[in-house]
Design a protein around this nucleic acid. Structure first.
Lengths: 160, 160
DNA sequence: ATCGGTCAAGAACGAGCGTTCCAGAACTCA
DNA sequence: TGAGTTCTGGAACGCTCGTTCTTGACCGAT
């Protein structure tokens, strides 16, 4: 997904037209504007990738596996960049984006809470959700090499 | 800092000229380009804000205080957005930015390792550094309300 | 055969982008 | 004082942006 790789401002409509192989006119007919397409992409990413992955956490064999899957999941890395990018750059100024990002994080925290047997609104769960996001950010900036051991260490330390 | 709030692509040279009160010509004479100014701002943020804050961690009274200070520090929140923004959007495609971001994270991890008495390259320290970043991201997207209890919970759980 | 409606291809639009340039005011220092 | 340098305000450049419009090809139904 182009938005995930280059961010909203870094992706031009020309890039989208060329990358998606769709015609300019169709794009504006269906989505109305660049922002409309962005919101649709974010919603799609949330509903078809983040939420299913998050739902799958609750049937893992334990906290360590659940955390590892959360930090590595979503869709292999590329589109989780869309969530990160939205949280960092769009959410602070766009309420619609902020609502979608918040929904994604709440779902993640609910799943983590269920696995760990904690209340969903506990501070620890909030910290854990943030940790998952931070590990994805690390992957994005430095490549995915370092995160797997890190998340394992965090999991065994927390889920004692 | 404008770059921190709106991101690199979201900040125009006109915005910078007007916001900084500096003349267009002077800006290009000193920094050469918009990217040069961005790198200078990132370097300044790293050396004058991140590194001192990180250094101060090692003299806190304990792990919980150190984590809380790391998650709340840097410079009150605004410019830490510069580090987040750089990590998410510039680092993947700009090696110079990636090097600066990596330097900042390594310094943070070294300090956390010193406070917790762990080796600096241990997976747990990597996870903790990511957690701090993730908590800052949460603050940025949702406002700073929720992070303080979260980081406290994480700290008491980890620094047993 | 012809019609209304959807479609692709891309030209065109005004605005904004990063960058350069210039004319003149303000300084420096012999 | 006066020559040389540095600042300032802003116009101008070529380009790209998001968006709209024109044109012509294709379609099943009349």
């Amino acid at each position: 997904m182009l938005f995930a790789e280059r961010g909203y401002d870094g992706t031009s409509v020309d890039d989208l037209v060329q990358g998606l192989g769709v015609h300019r006119g169709s794009l504006y007919k269906v989505f109305g504007s660049k922002r409309g397409l962005y919101l649709a992409a974010l919603r799609h990413h949330l509903e078809d990738e983040v939420l299913p992955t998050v739902a799958a956490l609750t049937v893992t064999s334990g906290p360590a596996e659940a955390l590892a899957q959360a930090a590595g999941g979503f869709d292999g890395g590329a589109a989780a960049g869309l969530l990160l990018s939205a949280a960092v750059h769009q959410a602070p100024t766009d309420p619609d984006v902020a609502a979608l990002v918040e929904e994604a994080l709440r779902a993640l925290e609910r799943a983590l809470a269920a696995v760990l047997g904690e209340p969903a609104d506990s501070p620890l769960i909030g910290a854990l959700g943030a940790s998952v996001l931070g590990l994805r950010l690390r992957d994005r900036a430095f490549g995915p090499a370092a995160s797997a051991p890190a998340v394992h260490a965090l999991a065994v330390r927390l889920a004692d």
